[in-house]
Design a protein around this nucleic acid. Structure first.
Lengths: 240, 240
DNA sequence: GTCTATACACAGATAGAC
DNA sequence: GTCTATCTGTGTATAGAC
């Protein structure tokens, strides 16, 4: 799985989910032609991400969104019934794609060390392709209300649990050193988040996804991988 | 330096800087009695942090702030001339305290490994005492404009540079393994940020600052500390 | 389906009494 | 110094023509 294939995969998923989402909300959405809905919903989502990531979702006015999408104020309200609903739809869509793709990839490995590598790489690739959504989701979760907020927070914890359970499994099998796996999972997640939250920094420094992925992996493996200790010793002896 | 002493230190610093800030902006601030200014400015700052961290600075209305501080709308404008200026003042104040305290502590150590430990511990303590400000600063930087935005971004990079230069120094002296110190500094900062951005998570799990600090240190040292490799080998032999 | 025009609420900010 | 009352702009959302 290389990066180009990954991009294609996400693009297909996006449209799939746009259609699914349309089917679910057929009653709420006034516009009835599926082709029109899918086309315009994607423009609306992209524009929302663009503007919100510049100045925040609250600060984005419907007039801003109208300008960016080329649709009038009235037309916009054919696709959602309130600004808050737009936020909910966008968050839901991203969560669905993320969950689907992460699970597919991680389940393709069974051995803990390989699973860990796959999970880290997949998450980085995914957040690279969908960077605007990841950033948006992180920054705007606090603006959600009620059940949508709950779901967003659960989804955040879900990713962390994936890493925690991989670490735990590896410890039980003896391939990982016995160290706090919950805080460790949080630390891994923090590093993965930095990739999409500080993307400009990494771009400026010309750090690629792959290089970042390698770094995170080495970092984590130096701490957790049992076999790594001997490797380090070897390096120490040969290098000086 | 324990946590209680640290709290006291920050509290004193806060009032100091409130007075300094008042001296600098004597022309802008309409209210003239220093005692009144320092007292009310602190209430205003605290209320702003409280409300903003719940729903964002943009979404906080001046009427919200009036309710929370107990001051009327008119009275509030005696302390700043616009909502944006309030944001700038608050960000500036936090940056000043942070920089001052971080530098004081880090400069008290010279040896790289000790300096690294001190830097990590101090940053965690500081962000624990000033958690509302750290969270606020992170979330609202994008709402700043012009020179204030620039200063905030520079200040963010400044912290990272501290870690990068400690790592580099250690590598030159041979106490740290030769590995990317720039990405490493970013990773350390990401973990430190997680502490104040996800504070509720850690509180729920009953993870204390000290335990988190120890974890981060062990994690980082496993990767960078030259001498650690032999320690790990020893542990591996004795534990199984 | 999409447009323009507009209703209505609420935001930030100020004036002037006390 | 602080209050209440108010000005003016802008926000979300809808109505009704095309």
């Amino acid at each position: 799985m290389n990066y180009a294939e990954f991009q294609q995969l996400v693009k297909v998923s996006k449209q799939d989910i746009c259609r699914e989402s349309f089917a679910e909300n057929r009653k709420k959405i006034k516009v009835k032609k599926e082709k029109t809905v899918v086309k315009n919903l994607e423009r609306i989502f992209d524009a929302t991400l663009k503007i919100s990531n510049e100045k925040g979702f609250q600060a984005m006015s419907m007039r801003d969104l109208s300008r960016e999408t080329g649709l009038s104020l009235g037309a916009l309200y054919g696709y959602f019934s309130s600004k808050e609903e737009l936020l909910d739809m966008l968050q839901r869509q991203g969560r669905t794609i993320t969950k689907r793709i992460l699970e597919e990839h991680i389940n393709s490995e069974v051995e803990p060390a390989a699973k860990l590598r796959m999970a880290i790489r997949t998450h980085l690739y995914l957040s690279e392709v969908m960077q605007p959504w990841f950033y948006f989701s992180y920054m705007e979760t606090k603006n959600l209300t009620g059940s949508e907020r709950k779901k967003a927070l659960l989804s955040e914890l879900y990713t962390e649990k994936i890493f925690a359970s991989i670490l735990k499994q590896g410890q039980e099998k003896g391939v990982f050193v016995s160290r706090d796996h919950q805080i460790g999972a949080g630390a891994i997640k923090a590093m993965l988040q930095d990739w999409y939250l500080k993307r400009r920094k990494y771009a400026r420094r010309k750090v690629t996804v792959d290089r970042y992925a390698s770094f995170v992996l080495e970092f984590v493996e130096a701490f957790y991988l049992t076999s790594n200790v001997t490797t380090q010793l070897f390096r120490l002896k040969t290098e000086g």
